[in-house]
Write a protein that binds this DNA or RNA. Structure first.
Lengths: 346, 346
DNA sequence: GTTAGCACTCATTGACTGAGAGTGCTAACA
DNA sequence: TGTTAGCACTCTCAGTCAATGAGTGCTAAC
């Protein structure tokens, strides 16, 4: 990052072209540059430089006799070394702060994430995504079994991330609530602090040997394990899909439909967002760097959110490659930090 | 319904025009009708009849020298008296049956409804909506309180619809789990069968007098009541929004954006769907019958789903007024019944 | 190395056209 | 009196064509 590949003047021109194109969505010509930005250069000189930049793959032309636009490589260079970090405006800051006001009742996870997605969409004007906390990363805090009827018990699992999960178990034998209370206490004390990721067959076997609740208990425990594993662990919240309609590149229905299709397919989105989890903190994917053919000419800016140093999930924004990176990066980064902070307090 | 307002020939023509327009999305001319449907009438005669139908408000013309299309009034008449009920094809039937196979593990509510929305969208090719079961209609089955830490307890409320709700309560005093178990048993026995709608201050007061758990208990109970009331009770699941892009009337971005905006606004959708709950069973709203200005030229077909005769929620489809009513009505009706049936079994 | 000048390319726009589909009206017909 | 044929008229849509304007590459001069 930041390795200098281009001489300063070329850099400047690449920057100006990119900035301008991001703002106007129109190919940028040499005359425009000479006029708008006082570089002390004539259009002809700029043309020469731009021709060079095109040859080395940073710029491209939609067609002869049009201005230049950045190639994916150009965007990458721009993002890595040229982009000037933008500050959040006071309004934006106030807006976000208000939403994450700790005075807000500790709402359900659900609506917290939903609201966060809305915030992100509202601030960036792009479709926004949030990946829910991964259950595997969470550690057990409490387990409680409640008798429902003769052959059903309800398992209540509370994780240290504040996540609560209900699991309905079918049991061959009837437990009294007293039995279940004893078992609950036992399980809670044994499993407290264990992460769900580690809660595998090994631990279950160990519990079986230590416990003295009869062999029916073994079956129940096994059921709990499998049910917990089967729980749909990750979800994606999406908001602001309409925002893409504001982007001129999606005025052609076909392009739009393609992106829209992805935004409605949770599986695909999960893939995209899980990529983001690989790397702590901020992540920018441009064009083909996103591993999905359908999102041609899209970029994704994501940031992980953490509690106690554990990466729980990610928030992100999906937009055209001609995205206002400077702004989006700032917003996404900040919102991710706020979300992490908010969850930590709870 | 079914009141005969038009003479048979006019009815026939209105029906043909509507059927044809629903299929082709093109204004229907007299020649087309004469050619396609053997009415034994010349185009000229049909023209005369259509002119009459236009005058009495059942048909309209996009512009002179175009064919006719049904007005909202025309659609209404069509839906009420002319439409021929369609049967589900074997494929469709098999598809739905497979999804509601009782062998499917009793998944979480969440994903059940999500899947149902997908089914509806896939079958109708229109955006589909489902309103989650209203909590108020449900009756208590179990209440269980679990001690979390010195000043938090987790309330677990199980309703007879299979709905499970977790509520985190802050308590001024520390309860032992033993205390909580006693309280849980007490509450469960007292509240079993009470509907959430009836669970108001009156019942809480009665419980307070009957219980002998000290005055701290009163506060906790009060907390439970308010928290339960505050729970976000209704949600809307949406799927298949892209489907509207297939409809020619939404090729103009503006129209599309309008509808899309609504589909992203949960509050608006809640309003729309709550209308549907007013009336048991199937409901068709055409054009301005939907109480929302933004859905100009849209229709909504909804059906309530029930468990034990209680209306829990509704499923529905939102599409252009030029909607394949015959098909949609059949599908929506059937899916609603399946969903109700599935929930009853659980 | 920089710049002015010029010929060239390409997308966009608006005006115009003809074809096609459909209507309303009138007059003839059964 | 209801039905039909014929005809002039209207309106949309797709296509053609030329003008416009923004931008380029190249060459030659500074």
């Amino acid at each position: 990052m930041g390795r200098r590949e281009l001489d300063p003047r070329k850099e400047k021109i690449l920057q100006v072209v990119t900035d301008d194109y991001i703002e106007s969505a129109e190919p940028v010509g040499s005359r425009t540059i000479a006029r708008k930005h006082k570089l002390g250069l004539s259009p002809a000189t700029i043309r020469n430089e731009m021709a060079d930049l095109e040859e080395s793959g940073y710029l491209k032309q939609p067609h002869t006799s049009a201005g230049r636009i950045p190639s994916h490589r150009g965007y990458r260079y721009y993002v890595n070394t040229l982009m000037e970090q933008k500050q959040l405006t006071d309004d934006e800051l106030a807006f976000i702060k208000a939403e994450f006001d700790p005075k807000h009742k500790p709402a359900e996870f659900d609506s917290l994430l939903q609201r966060t997605t809305k915030i992100l969409a509202a601030l960036t004007k792009y479709p926004s995504l949030i990946l829910t906390p991964r259950l595997q990363e969470a550690h057990f805090r409490h387990i409680h079994l409640v008798s429902m009827d003769t052959n059903h018990i309800l398992g209540l699992v509370v994780m240290d991330t504040g996540f609560v999960e209900n699991i309905l178990l079918e049991t061959p034998v009837a437990y009294t609530q007293d039995d279940l209370n004893k078992i609950s206490t036992f399980l809670s004390s044994k499993l407290q602090g264990v992460s769900l990721m580690d809660f595998g067959t090994a631990i279950v076997n160990q519990l079986k040997t230590e416990a003295q609740f009869g062999e029916a208990f073994d079956d129940t425990l096994q059921l709990l394990l499998t049910a917990l594993g089967k729980k749909k662990q990750e979800r994606i919240y999406v908001d602001g899909t309409i925002n893409i309609l504001e982007q001129p590149e999606f005025k052609q229905v076909e392009k739009f439909k393609l992106l829209m299709g992805i935004l409605e397919e949770e599986g695909k989105l999960l893939n995209l967002m899980n990529q983001a989890l690989q790397k702590r903190g901020l992540n920018i994917c441009i064009g083909e760097e996103i591993n999905d053919d359908a999102v041609e000419d899209c970029s994704m800016v994501t940031a992980t959110y953490e509690v106690d140093g554990r990466i729980l999930g990610a928030v992100g924004v999906l937009g055209p490659t001609r995205m206002d990176y400077a702004h989006v990066v700032t917003v996404v980064d900040f919102v991710a930090k706020c979300l992490g902070g908010f969850l930590t307090e709870k």
